[in-house]
Simulated scan of single mutants.
Amino acid sequence: MDERILKYFQNELDIAERLKLLREIEKDDILKKQFSEYQNIRALMNLSSYMENVEEGKVKYSHFTQWVLNRKRHQYLFKLMKYAAAVVLLIVSTCWLTLWTSSRLSNDNLIAETNTLYVPAGQRACITLQDGSVVWLNAQSTLIYPSHFWGTERKVQIIGEAFFEIAKNEKKPFYVVAQNVEMRVLGTKFNVYSYPETGLTRTSLIEGAVQVSCDDGREKVILKPNEQVTVRNGQMTVDLIEFPDALLWKEGIYSFNNERLIDITKKLELYYDVKIVVSSQQLRNIRYTCKFRQRDGIDEILKVIQQIHHFKINKDKEKNTFTLN
């Protein structure tokens, strides 16, 4: 078994290593099988320990009550039943405590189980978190989140792009961490674009209010609806959302408004996990306004763009590379 799988479940990998492993698992059937088998083994081990406690308690209690019923001397019955009650209480308490501690996590010395959801290229996914918040994930994106939100805050981490619809809870604010940027919300709808390859994090607010901070909280800004903030190299720039259709990706539509071909191809590379080389400088700067369905796939999208300006497309299947010239 790949040693990284063991380190993954022991939380010994950093974010970059976890993301790299998950992407390799998506493409490698052997790794995927090893990951799934080990995950199932851990789940069964955890389950079996709790079930053994419950079943063992039932067996012991059954033996004990039978022993009490078979006693001939009635003078001991009352004492024995008191002992039986004590034993039953101990067994039930032990089983209940075991199950309770396995599901509810203490803020002092226990950590909530961390889950990771990775969306492969050319797909998108939607997940409802334990608090009722809904998160849409774009292609090549990863959401890291706890199984339960205990304590005084809710916090998740996003790598890639996600659209959040946060369940309102004034007593427990929601935090989203993306690269070196943190967003604090109470109940709102907003989009986060934060692929590491782009070197930026952009938060676009649709509804409610979001406080965005970077540089360990030294730089902060509070967004209003229809505003977005772009963080690049620690610098924050706030402007209006000029092209809301860019957020249609959660409905399976990729929209581009007067964008250079080179900028469009950079996004398509992220969405479909391919390499696109635009060899002509003139071709790179041609601007397009267009919409595509995610399910159309990269081949069909490039063919549609090709019909507007008749460039050539050369595909290298082995390297998963497209060259436009």
Results as ranks from 00 to 15, higher is better:
290 C>T: 14
220 K>D: 01
268 L>R: 07
277 V>Y: 14
30 I>F: 10
140 Q>K: 02
293 R>E: 14
7 K>R: 14
111 I>L: 03
234 G>V: 07
155 K>N: 12
249 W>S: 02
62 S>K: 09
142 T>G: 07
306 Q>Y: 00
25 I>R: 02
295 R>N: 07
144 I>W: 04
262 I>Y: 08
190 F>A: 01
169 N>M: 04
229 V>K: 03
79 K>S: 13
103 S>K: 14
46 N>M: 13
57 G>P: 00
29 D>Q: 12
220 K>S: 02
187 G>A: 05
308 I>K: 05
48 S>M: 15
51 M>H: 09
52 E>A: 12
220 K>H: 02
212 V>F: 08
152 T>W: 10
317 K>W: 11
106 S>R: 08
54 V>H: 11
77 L>E: 06
266 K>A: 00
157 Q>R: 00
145 Y>L: 03
71 R>H: 09
1 M>F: 06
230 T>D: 00
321 T>M: 07
137 L>R: 00
280 S>G: 06
117 L>M: 09
272 Y>T: 02
184 R>M: 15
118 Y>S: 07
227 E>A: 10
283 L>T: 13
259 E>Y: 14
233 N>S: 10
80 L>E: 04
147 S>H: 11
208 G>R: 10
22 L>M: 09
299 D>V: 08
161 E>G: 06
203 T>L: 03
191 N>W: 04
45 M>V: 13
158 I>S: 06
47 L>Y: 15
76 Y>P: 02
6 L>E: 13
78 F>H: 12
85 A>R: 05
227 E>N: 08
288 Y>F: 07
256 F>W: 05
190 F>M: 00
32 K>N: 13
212 V>L: 12
111 I>M: 01
143 L>C: 01
269 E>L: 01
143 L>R: 00
109 N>S: 07
141 S>E: 04
230 T>V: 08
218 R>E: 15
159 I>G: 04
145 Y>N: 01
289 T>I: 01
160 G>S: 08
51 M>L: 14
290 C>G: 11
100 W>L: 07
243 F>Q: 05
206 I>A: 10
143 L>H: 01
79 K>A: 10
158 I>P: 02
45 M>Q: 15
117 L>I: 04
88 V>G: 14
325 N>C: 12
274 V>E: 11
184 R>L: 12
291 K>E: 08
129 L>P: 07
188 T>E: 04
36 S>D: 05
252 G>C: 01
46 N>T: 14
308 I>V: 09
273 D>P: 11
65 T>I: 15
226 N>M: 07
149 F>K: 05
24 E>L: 13
215 D>P: 09
90 L>F: 15
301 I>T: 11
235 Q>T: 13
192 V>Q: 02
267 K>M: 03
180 N>G: 00
153 E>W: 05
175 Y>S: 00
289 T>H: 02
184 R>C: 12
277 V>W: 13
307 Q>G: 07
88 V>P: 04
44 L>K: 12
242 E>L: 14
88 V>S: 15
30 I>D: 06
40 N>L: 15
14 D>P: 03
163 F>M: 11
92 V>G: 02
149 F>C: 03
132 G>D: 02
